[in-house]
C-alpha cells in the first residue's frame, strides 16, 4: 500500500460502515463474492505493522556504517546527545551486513532520521544509498533528517546525503557534521551537540535564531 497507505486508510473508514453487496472498482474485475473480505484485507495491508510503543515520545533513528569505527563513534556520541534531551527515544542501527528493506517499517514510524557514512571515493557508501533509495515508497515528507560522517580527504558524503534528504522533502534544519579521520574529544562533543540540537528540533524546543545574511558564508 506504500506510499499511499494513509489515503487507503481514509477511504476504508468511509467504506467500512456501508452495507456491501459487491465492489465495482473504477478498473479491475467486479468483486461479487465476499466483498467484505477485500475491505478487511485492505485494512490489514494498510495498517502499520510495527507497534510504536513510544507514542508519547519522539523517535530518532540513527543509521550508520563505519569503515574504521570513526563514524560509529560519531553515531554513538550523537545518540547519547539526543538521548540526554528528555522526550526523545533514540535507536542506533549499524547498516553493515543488513538489507535496506527491513528498515522500511522503522523509518515510517520514526520522527527523525540521521545517517552516518564515511566518504569513500568521494561518495557516501552503497548501503546508505540503498537505504535512501528505498525511502521513496515511504511517506517521509516533513520528517527531520540529518547527516554526519568521518572522512579522510574530501568528505563529500555528508553533503550528498543532505541533498538527497532534502530531495525526499525531509527537513534538514541542522547542518551535518564532517570530521576528519578519528574524532577527538572535542569533535565527539560536537557530535553530542548535534544530537542535542536534533532532539530539540524534534521536541519543538528549538530556539528561534535570527541572523544577518552577511554572516552567512
Amino acid at each position: 500500500m506504500r506510499p499511499f497507505r494513509e489515503y487507503v486508510l481514509d477511504a476504508i473508514a468511509l467504506i467500512e460502515p456501508l452495507e456491501l453487496n459487491l465492489i465495482a472498482p473504477a478498473h479491475g474485475p467486479i468483486l461479487r463474492h465476499a466483498p467484505r473480505d477485500y475491505v478487511h484485507r485492505y485494512r490489514e495491508l494498510a495498517t502499520p505493522r510495527l507497534f510504536n510503543e513510544a507514542r508519547s515520545e519522539k523517535t530518532l533513528v540513527v543509521f550508520y556504517i563505519s569503515a574504521y569505527g570513526n563514524t560509529r563513534r560519531m553515531a554513538e556520541s550523537l545518540a547519547a546527545g539526543a538521548e540526554s534531551i528528555g522526550g526523545v527515544r533514540v535507536s542506533l542501527y549499524d547498516l553493515e551486513c543488513s538489507e535496506a528493506g527491513i528498515f522500511t517499517d522503522l523509518v515510517e514510524e520514526a520522527d527523525g532520521l540521521a545517517f552516518g557514512s564515511p566518504t569513500i571515493n568521494a561518495d557516501a557508501v552503497k548501503p546508505i544509498w540503498d537505504l535512501l533509495s528505498s525511502l521513496t515508497s515511504v511517506n517521509v515528507k516533513g520528517k527531520l533528517g540529518a547527516a554526519f560522517g568521518s572522512y579522510g580527504w574530501s568528505g563529500e558524503a555528508v553533503r550528498l546525503i543532505e541533498d538527497r534528504l532534502r530531495g525526499l522533502k525531509l527537513r534538514v534544519p541542522v547542518e551535518g557534521l564532517r570530521i576528519k579521520l578519528v574524532p577527538d574529544a572535542g569533535e565527539l562533543e560536537a557530535c553530542r551537540d548535534l544530537g542535542e540540537q536534533l532532539a530539540r528540533h524534534l521536541t519543538g524546543r528549538v530556539e528561534h535564531r535570527e541572523i544577518d545574511m552577511a554572516a552567512l558564508a
Binding site: 541572523i211 545574511m213 552567512l216 558564508a217
Partner: peptide, 27 residues
C-alpha cells in the same frame, strides 16, 4: 519556518540565495 531561522537580507535578494545558505528545506 521549517528550520526556525530568520535572516536579515538586503532588498532585492532572491529567496534562493538565502534559503540555500541557511539550509532551509526548499529544494
Amino acid at each position: 519556518q521549517d528550520i526556525g531561522v530568520s535572516v536579515t537580507v538586503p532588498a532585492g535578494t532572491r529567496l534562493i540565495e538565502v534559503s540555500e545558505k541557511v539550509g532551509a528545506g526548499i529544494t
